[in-house]
Design a protein around this nucleic acid. Structure first.
Lengths: 102, 102
DNA sequence: TAAATATATAGATGATTATCAATGTGAGGG
DNA sequence: CCCTCACATTGATAATCATCTATATATTTA
């Protein structure tokens, strides 16, 4: 995962509605209409946010009948977390113990 | 640290220039002119990005003579990492072992 | 087949973003 | 006291964002 991918995910998480959607999905997959109930936004706006999340790679979209089930893309999410975890940690070759100061 | 703070930090990290600045600062504090050397942007644009980072709480700004020294706000950064680490982890009360599946 | 439901798309709008050139400010040096 | 250097601010601009209303599409149900 490179800088561009991470920046895209950060952009996806830079809206508090979308952050809350991700929190809700951590509990397991949910369909769009269930998500919509929890927000004070219109259906097209939710659709727009879900598109943003899916395109960032953070969320999966599974269609079943007339429903869309959204879930976290765990693989991608873990990679993102690793990048953020490493960010802000000195990784210079000069370190003798192989550990950063964070 | 609440959702609004996290969304603000994510917004600050949603630009690959700023992501790279944070990477550079992980190596220790740097002055603006040193940072500027590494990018293909003008000085006002760097100034704008640094303001964004400082206002997100992620970066400290220390003035010394005519220089500005920027460094990571470790405390804030650690809190952000904790939030992201917890995000996407089920924390429901039903869990018996107190651990999430991530 | 017609109605209802879940979602997407199109088009509009006001707000915000990233960027620049030009200029202002404050500190040091000759 | 002027000049230079590091940085901020202003004003402009083109692009993107978040949101809405209106409408289209696809699927299930009566």
């Amino acid at each position: 995962m490179n800088k561009i991918d991470v920046a895209l995910i950060c952009k996806a998480l830079s809206d508090s509605n979308r952050l809350e959607i991700v929190q809700m999905l951590s509990d397991g997959e949910k369909c769009g209409c269930k998500l919509l109930e929890r927000f004070e936004i219109t259906q097209p706006t939710l659709s727009y946010h879900m598109k943003t999340l899916v395109e960032s790679g953070l969320v999966n979209d599974r269609k079943e009948g007339k429903w869309h089930y959204y879930s976290l893309n765990t693989e991608h999410f873990v990679q993102f977390k690793k990048f953020i975890e490493a960010l802000g940690c000195e990784n210079s070759a000069g370190e003798t113990d192989g550990c950063c100061r964070c």
